[in-house]
Design a protein around this nucleic acid. Sequence first.
RNA 1: GCGUCGUUAGCCAAGCGGUUAGGCACAGCUCUGCAAAAGCUGCUAGACUGGUUCGACUCCAGUACGACGCUCCA
Length: 470
Amino acid sequence: MPIPRCYNTLTRSLEAIQPRVGEGQKLSLYTCGPTVYAHAHIGNFRAYVFEDLLQRHLQERGFIVRRVMNLTDVDDKTIRGAHAAGIALSDYTRPFKEAFFQDSKELRLLPAEAYPAATDPEQIVRMISMIGTLMDRGHAYQAEDGSVYFRIASFPEYGKLAHVDLEGQRPGQRVASDEYDKEAVADFALWKAWVAEDGAVGWESPWGKGRPGWHIECSAMATGMLGEAIDIHCGGVDNIFPHHEAEIAQCECARHGQEPFVRYWMHCAHLMVEGSKMAKSAGNFFTLRDLLEKGWTGREVRYALLAVHYRGALNFTMEGLAAARTALARLDAWRERLAETAGSETATVAPDAATEGFFTALDDDLNISSALAVLFETLRESNRRMDEKKLTPPQARGLLQWLARVDGVLALEPDASAAVISAEVEELVDARAAAREAKEWKKSDAIRDQIAALGWTVKDTKDGQKILRS
RNA sequence: GCGUCGUUAGCCAAGCGGUUAGGCACAGCUCUGCAAAAGCUGCUAGACUGGUUCGACUCCAGUACGACGCUCCA
């Protein structure tokens, strides 16, 4: 079996993905999930779609993937949101969590094995325990403000993921003045001491009442669910520094063995909308539901997000969505035509060896463009042969079988619900067939308009009418 | 300022030191009462300036432009 390779942010090179010795075909995958203070936007989902493609392809290659995605449900933004709404934190975040799962389903994302939330009691316990270990080992200290900070000076490797040299960095313009009691500016909070603005949000700890810092949340949830040594960790490029850098520092200072926290770091590039950064003020800010309201489907959005290599910036445009729609319609028509050609044939003839190129392309750091090129070349070639009546039913069946494997990775097959025709439409189609029989073209056209108004497109073929979702 | 990465036909977007990537759009044809849909065919680019080479979109250097990170952010 060919070995998939990925670009590892840590080493800045392409590496073969190999399970750890003794782990068989098992790979653990930790993916940074949403902060549930609002609806996730399509930029967030670009990362999740990339991670989904990664998981599906690894599974196609025979790996057993254990994936965990966290939900950040306590941080500055969620607390601020709950406070502004005048409701409890959990009541504020719950609808956003639910919306996230709905959207994920709409985009056909495989569910993770677990979705730990930062406020889960067992996670809080683990965070506190981890901070305790860091304190015991001298990697953390409690400052005068009561908060506990990670002592970056105690971990010389800090910066290895982002390849930043702290000495050479220009600190941000706004060094918070209330952080004067930290030993070093770059030290980050592990435990934030309770302040009045936190309201009812807070947990007791050996360092007093407070709440976890964002970085320790992920470190605790990742190692708690998947163990101290994780195979693959994904996220958006903006997470590289400081979030993932901090995760490495925390985990590698609190671990019991010597194994690296994560062996393969994979990061997804940003998404732009119509050529510029997505921003509410620019009016180009989209959540999935915004797009669904405009009449786009989840799989069209999935295609648009999937079709561009994850390490390149993706310019999300309405034209791109339209291109996705057309390309999908073409795939659907091909799939249907193959099924007709295959008929009830069950014997298969393996497709041309070139079709395997679809998967080998994905082995190469998920080269989706090359993979899709194989798919469309196969489509055109077999259509040509069907035009010439040269594709045999077993060959068509073989292609359908290959396509099923491809769908296992791309998840772009048509919705089953899309094919359900209402009785009303059924009647109109029959009435139109009668009108056509009688060559009553005006009546036929009028019925066609009625059917169109119900959302279906009629095609007249030599085998009668065919209707498709429009 | 420092650090990454990028610049491919109307748009999106890959591989490759020499042989048609692919998708969308557009055009022609086939099918057809009309239409739509679909199919086939056509459409061959590589920011700029030098260099290396028998040969460069592909390697090297410089220039310009752009994106991203250094700060909560996928």
